[in-house]
Design a protein around this nucleic acid. Structure first.
Length: 501
RNA sequence: GGUCCGAUGGCCGAGUGGUUAGGCUCAGCUCUGCAAAAGCUGCUACAGCGGUUCGAAUCCGCUUCGGACCUCCA
């Protein structure tokens, strides 16, 4: 197929991705360029997302943004899990959403709506772009039933007492179960704990495709086998296949989903549609840690974005802005764990300020007829950084070269032409803005309105005349009083500027 | 117990078989009535012990420590 209207960036040819399926760094070659299918496992909407969840979605946000920048036409699917995710082991566990609904005396769908809203609000706050499609598990019950039937007709699933289980043993006779996560089926069987109520399963490794609902189970649907609900792993197989096809390019999710969730997804797809691997590139975002430990709800060491911004949490010395957090996370590579700490957040806050201040300065840089900067080389290095498995830390380091140029040019120590200035501006807009999703955070406090500028200009003028009269007491008084109400005066060469704290 | 991963300067964090990561902190300087802010400059680290190599922090082995997954988790 030719797509003359869609032009890929020349840099697109050099993108490499650490592929967890092959355990190597592979050149990215989409199945149907310039189209790319990207699926990311979304949240289970039974409670507020915490900062660790945010990291994963941020990781794939930047990957999505960069693929867009390269000119790919991406269908980005990120699901909402609103049924089927169980608490505890898969036989006795209660549905998370149902459990929460019972606890709060609400309809399950009220829970789903509340935490879906929360999730989407949080994504917006961190400037994480919405996916092309955000499908829900409950919206695809029919397709899930159809996929179960397909798997059963291929002989890889069996019914037991109204529930359907995937037959891992049988599957592994013909296919490789455990290829993604590097598990050996015998090791897995040895490590499996003895669980109560496993009698329905033929093998402890089997997992549920459909569960018959107990008498008190709130969320249930009719099926050929029982009134019940789908297993957790099934929804991602169904929705990815429906929207991206039986084989697609990139599947993402948190590292903790690699096994068993993603392994089961692969088994389900092959079990239903045959031997072809459904996904070509598997990418897993690594965990956010606190004192070296994974942040998770069950550990109780997580905090919500609201707590982060307000600073209202015992782990936080004070609040941090969403862009500070975004920048902090992008200073580490997605494939490594990242340790949260107040010191690191504060360092990121300062670094971000410097980067953004330089970006804002570009527009007003003085230009000269000849220039002494190599913008094209800088651009090459930016693309090279991102092409090397989306290496945002190196991208940031590269942009700081630009920061230095900007500051030197502003001080007249470096020559830059108008053309270079405009290229530099575009470079920052592309990589800091479009790719990393950084944006200027406007002060949203109630003190800011259109009159503030005029008011402050007047005050600065009065203070300047006091200074001209060498009335230091008055000048300092004005500065101190303003500081007391949260307005900072910055004296510069060409007069004073100000900003709210 | 099984599988896998990591250990980098005061802190956070990249990368690489031989050449500056970067940010923050700190110090000096510039600017400045003073202070702050801002800018410039400086600060050369790779857990320990062996091995391979002309050369290893980077490859291999062992040790110590830490973590993830194997059960719900992004």
């Amino acid at each position: 197929m030719d797509h003359p209207e869609i032009k890929l960036s020349p840099y697109a040819a050099d993108l490499t991705i650490s592929n967890n399926l092959t355990r190597s760094k592979d050149r990215f070659e989409p199945l149907n360029a310039p189209y790319v299918g990207l699926y990311v496992c979304g949240p289970t909407v039974y409670s507020n997302v915490h900062l660790g969840n945010v990291r994963t979605f941020l990781t794939f946000d930047v990957i999505y943004r960069y693929l867009c920048q390269l000119g790919y036409q991406i269908r980005y699917v990120r699901n909402i899990t609103d049924v089927g995710h169980l608490i505890g082991d898969t036989d006795e566990g209660e549905d998370k959403i149902g459990a929460k609904a019972r606890l709060e005396n609400l309809e399950p769908m009220e829970i789903v709506q509340r935490y879906t809203n929360d999730f989407q609000d949080v994504m917006r706050v961190f400037n994480i772009l919405p996916p092309s499609i955000e499908p829900t598990a409950t919206g695809h019950i029919i397709e899930q039933i159809e996929m179960i039937e397909q798997i059963m007709s291929n002989g890889f699933a069996y019914e037991a007492n109204g529930s359907i289980y995937f037959d891992v043993r049988k599957f592994s006779e013909k296919h490789d179960y455990g290829a993604l996560s590097g598990r050996k089926i015998d090791d897995l069987r040895n490590a499996t704990r003895e669980l109560d109520g496993q009698s329905e399963k033929r093998d402890p490794l089997d997992f549920a495709l459909w569960k018959k609902a107990g008498a008190t189970h709130l969320m249930h649907w009719p099926s050929p086998w029982s009134v019940g609900f789908p297993g957790w792993h099934l929804e991602c197989s169904v929705m990815s296949t429906r929207y991206l096809g039986k084989q697609f390019d990139i599947h993402g999710g948190g590292m903790d989903l690699k096994f068993p969730h993603h392994e089961c997804e692969i088994a389900q797809n092959i079990g239903a549609y045959g031997g072809e691997l459904p996904v070509r590139y598997w990418i897993h975002g690594n965990m956010l840690t606190v004192n070296g430990r994974k942040m998770s709800k069950s550990e109780g060491n997580g905090f919500t974005p609201e707590e982060l911004i307000s600073g209202n949490h015992k782990l936080l010395e004070r609040g941090y802005s969403p862009m500070t957090v975004r920048f902090f996370m992008l200073q580490g590579h997605y494939a490594g764990t990242l340790d949260f700490s107040n010191a690191a957040l504060q360092a990121a806050e300062k670094g971000l300020q410097r980067l953004m201040a330089a970006w804002a300065k570009i527009e007003n840089l003085p230009t000269t007829d000849t220039g002494a900067v190599d913008i094209a080389g800088l651009r090459d290095r930016c693309y090279a950084a991102m092409n090397d498995d989306f290496n945002t830390p190196v991208l940031i380091a590269t942009l700081y070269d630009g920061v230095k140029w900007i500051n030197n040019a502003a001080d007249g120590r470096l020559q830059i032409t108008a053309e270079q200035k405009s290229s530099l501006s575009e470079l920052f807009r592309t990589f800091a803005g479009d790719v990393m999703g950084l944006k200027f955070e406007v002060d949203t406090s109630e003190n800011v309105d259109n009159r503030s500028d005029g008011l402050m200009a007047l005050i600065c003028e009065l203070r300047a005349s006091a200074k001209a009269d060498k009335n230091w007491a008055m000048a300092d008084e004005i500065r101190d009083q303003l500081a007391a109400i949260g307005v900072q005066i910055k004296d510069g060469k060409d007069g004073a500027s100000w900003e709210f704290d």
